[in-house]
Design a protein around this nucleic acid. Structure first.
Length: 614
RNA sequence: GGGCCCGUAGCUCAGCCAGGAUAGAGCGUCGGCCUCCGGAGCCGAAGGUCGCGGGUUCGAAUCCCGCCGGGCCCGCCA
């Protein structure tokens, strides 16, 4: 596929080759986007290095170097700038080839990475005792978008969701049901009921009562060994998980496999892991000091207590090793659910007849919030010591906190701090489902005002909400903390997901009204707006790769907005259907057609639903 | 005490990893644009000591060091 990236690569090669003629040792030059688009489409600072070495002016060096650069004059034109930069512009000939390829392929076609990998990505993994809040949503969205990106590049990807069904949070909930008399049924969505009512109140009661604390320990022990209380808890937990899944499916996410912590515990996987660690000498038994009688991992962290029980990280470590096939997979599998995209979601089991559905991965990605980074890095370090070829990749993101005003709304009281961290235990959080319906209502109101005859308004409004939420949570840099404010979240204009959806609808409308086949072109007569639009379209694979190599979708989301913006400018300035000149009309129609294909491709990777009308 | 992350326009954020040419968006403010493929849009204006100080460099928002502010982590909890 001819594109901005393919031209950049060949230009870069040409420049490096030309540089060899100067015999400068290891020159590090920049070839890429200029700071300001008005300078051109590519720029290089190579002349500065020549200038420095040979003590000539940067401008002279630039002119000399430009003369030596062998580049397809048909597709790229170069110019030495008095400042010393050499700037390059893509020509109409390039744009014509590019546009015709898009038309011919009906899109970008495959964007392939040379080395195909088996990738596992684990995301969501929310404790199964409550509904997802907006903090969890960041995890789901980043994870699902990376999954889509990996798929787009042709990797073989498996998405995992880990269910911690033997932890304290679940134990609290079960204490609520078993000893505090909470009803097992509710008219509310079950995950909301369990989290908002049973868990919050049970946790509070347990904290205030030694007797209940004992009960909780009893529950925890039983969950670990898979006894009577575990069998009581299991259907409750499954019911919650199914509700949680509904929320994530609504966002457009999907999974391949659910891993239950209890299956790892009851299946004896920890013992296999522990043996492996001992065999490789990564754990040591300590005979004196404060860690006397404990097993310590990499001289850093207690892994097995002096009473012989394993600490929490042991489970995570076991799971991580299992993903990469460092300990064997003895699970059975069964189809747990059929997802909205038609695929089956499988679950592990300790009994059954389906085996080996799962393939150990070359690379295992995990999405976590920054607080878990030290522990996950320790796991990464341990796995590295166990395998030289397999890679454990930790993607950490900043926390989602609540703005003061949003927190005050939830707590129904005055709050001193500027931001408030969400907490399931204390009931301070904003549920994802509530956010979805709040945005949906705003969108519905807009539709009723502006397009009252639209069919399936609810459905459309829901898709607008998905785009709004996904975009707002994937757009900020991973390192950035997000302060969630409900009033901000309800805005659907400007740099938002719906802005991008809107341009898709505009393009769709034009093509629908044109009602004709788009054919290959033999010439282009481009205005500045049209050239800008084409340039942005040509940059798609460049940003796909950028996102992949940085494992960050920030720049891709940003690109989607810039591409959409270029279309809106074009749309504003140039008429398509009522253009009198037939050549221009055909060309613009082809542009709209190509735009629709590419923006749809980007939207699909980002998980923003396409809307023909809104 | 040790460590991680953030600090760019009134607000929310790109740009920093691979240092270069007048630091970009969105929201908000002010002013324009629907006889026109849909105004969830477009155009323009105002608005910035890139937290502060030092260093490296011909050149620093970007790299290094030190401060200051904000968030977080550091258990034989999970």
């Amino acid at each position: 596929m001819i594109s901005y990236l393919s031209e950049l690569n060949s230009l870069s090669e040409s420049i490096n080759k030309a540089m060899e003629e100067y015999n400068i040792a290891k020159p590090t030059i920049y070839v890429g986007e200029p700071t300001d688009p008005s300078y051109g489409d590519f720029t290089t600072n190579a002349a500065f290095i020549i200038s420095k070495t040979f003590k000539i002016s940067p401008y002279e060096a630039a002119k000399d170097l430009l003369y030596k650069i062998k580049v397809s004059k048909e597709d790229i034109s170069g110019e030495a700038h008095p400042s010393g930069f050499i700037n390059f512009k893509l020509t109409d000939s390039f744009y014509l080839k590019f546009l015709n390829e898009i038309i011919k392929n009906k899109g970008y076609g495959e964007i392939n990475i040379s080395e195909k990998k088996r990738i596992i990505i684990e995301h969501t993994s929310v404790n199964p005792n409550k509904a997802l809040h907006v903090g969890h949503a960041r995890n789901v969205i980043l994870g699902d978008t990376l999954y889509r990106l990996f798929k787009r590049l042709g990797h073989q990807v498996t998405v995992l969701n880990y269910i911690d069904d033997t932890g304290v949070q679940v134990a609290d909930l079960i204490v609520g049901f078993k000893y505090l008399g909470y009803s097992l049924e509710s008219n509310d969505k079950y995950d909301h009921y369990c989290g908002d009512v049973v868990y919050v109140n049970a946790n509070k009661a347990i904290e205030e009562s030694a007797e209940l604390k004992n009960k909780r320990s009893e529950v925890l022990r039983d969950l670990e060994k898979g006894g009577e209380i575990y069998r009581f808890a299991r259907p409750i937990i499954e019911k919650i998980v199914r509700e949680q899944l509904k929320s994530t499916w609504k966002l457009g996410a999907r999974y391949d496999l659910l891993n239950w912590e209890s299956h790892f515990v009851h299946g004896g996987y920890w013992k296999k892991m522990f043996d492996l660690l001992k065999e490789k000498g990564l754990v040591k038994f300590v005979t004196e000091g404060k860690h006397k009688n404990c097993w310590v991992l990499l001289d850093k962290k207690v892994l097995v207590r002096s009473d012989g029980t394993a600490v929490y990280i042991a489970k995570d470590l076991t799971y991580a090793a299992w993903k990469l096939g460092l300990i064997p997979d003895d699970f059975y599998y069964y189809a747990f659910a059929t997802q909205p995209d038609g695929t089956k979601l499988y679950s592990t089991s300790l009994t059954g007849n389906l085996k080996s559905l799962y393939t150990p991965a070359d690379e295992a990605y995990i999405l976590i919030d920054q607080r878990q980074l030290p522990l996950q890095n320790l796991i990464k370090e341990t796995l590295k010591a166990l395998s030289a070829t397999k890679e454990y990749k930790v993607i950490a993101y900043g926390l989602v906190a609540l703005s003061k005003s949003t927190a005050e709304k939830i707590a129904k009281s005055k709050i001193e701090k500027d931001i408030v961290h969400m907490s399931g235990r204390s009931g301070i959080y904003y549920n994802l489902d509530d956010l979805m319906s709040a945005i949906q209502q705003v969108a519905l109101k807009l539709i009723n005002e502006r397009n009252p005859t639209l069919s399936e308004k609810e459905e459309v409004a829901s898709k607008v909400a998905i785009a709004a939420i996904r975009y707002s949570l994937m757009r900020p840099d991973l390192d950035k903390q997000i302060v969630f404010d409900i009033n901000e979240a309800l805005k659907l204009e400007g740099d938002t997901g719906p802005y991008i959806q809107y341009t898709y609808a505009r393009a769709s409308k034009i093509l629908e009204k044109a009602n004709m086949e788009v054919s290959l072109l033999d010439q282009l007569i481009l205005s500045e707006e049209e050239k800008q639009l084409l340039l942005q379209m040509a940059k798609y694979d460049y940003y796909i790769f950028k996102a992949y190599f940085s494992t960050s979708v920030t720049s891709l989301a940003n690109y989607a907005h810039e591409l959409a913006s270029a279309f809106n400018v074009f749309y504003e300035k140039k008429r398509v259907l009522d253009e009198q000149d037939e050549t221009l009309r055909k060309m613009r129609l082809a542009l709209v057609y190509a735009y629709k294909l590419i923006i749809a491709d980007v939207m699909n990777v980002l998980g923003l639903p396409e809307l023909k009308e809104l």
